[in-house]
Design a protein around this nucleic acid. Structure first.
Lengths: 121, 121
DNA sequence: GCACCTACTATCTTTTGGATAGTATCGATG
DNA sequence: CATCGATACTATCCAAAAGATAGTAGGTGC
């Protein structure tokens, strides 16, 4: 097996390697709020307040953190429309849309199989 | 849209509802170590020590916690072979194997797209 | 008798997540 | 003219989770 990733040249990456940068990418995606936020933006730009209502139970601080991380990674774009009251829209980038697919599968799996889990007692 | 989930009857579940039990399932899967551990067991039973070596950087405490949670959920089985030194094997259940698919897509996405992220500076 | 092996548990520290309250701005309302 | 309301946040504090490190059990080989 040609697992590589000494973080060096652009060979194959390996999420199982502690120092591979793709481990950080996995950490970013393998997160409840990231998975929900990205799913909420699949159909187009969404405002902060709308995200807060859709992601039930999220606090503004955590939502901001989540969006900033996704923005820094390049999965989400943030657009400010100068107006009062403020108007800010978050949208998936092309990269964000491609990440949305595996995350949608994960959400679907959770919804479809929840009744089969914790069945032992 | 027929989104339901007042946690009540077995209608449709919704990960966006704070109180839906499938939110817990999403939290379980949308986790770095869960995603890596499940992937490591896809090809058959694995011992604790082997998992620890494969999931580079994981501490025994966190690995134990992760495996217990997966076991409680019914995704992983734990088999103790009474011997000295101890011999314990972890394996995916049928349910665990079905969860492995979306997680594999997520890991693959991370490995394939890592070079495109954080490109802005 | 002593070190070794595996699979942990215990303890402590650090990081992250979460709840809550407060800020800034301007237009509309009374 | 003071107040209220809307939006998108920050600031603060506390709790929960993650992480590092050391220790335990108990039979085997030397």
């Amino acid at each position: 097996m040609s697992r590589n990733c000494g973080t060096g040249s652009h060979d194959k990456h390996d999420v199982y390697a502690a120092l591979c940068p793709c481990r950080n990418v996995l950490e970013l995606l393998a997160n409840k709020w990231s998975a929900l936020a990205i799913g909420a933006m699949e159909d187009g730009p969404v405002r902060f307040g709308a995200l807060q209502r859709v992601l039930q139970g999220v606090s503004p601080k955590v939502l901001t953190q989540t969006l900033r991380r996704l923005e820094d990674a390049g999965l989400v774009s943030r657009t400010v429309y100068p107006a009062v009251p403020p108007h800010v829209e978050y949208a998936l980038t092309e990269l964000g849309h491609s990440a949305a697919e595996p995350l949608a599968h994960m959400r679907d799996w959770a919804e479809r199989n929840v009744d089969l889990l914790y069945a032992g007692q």
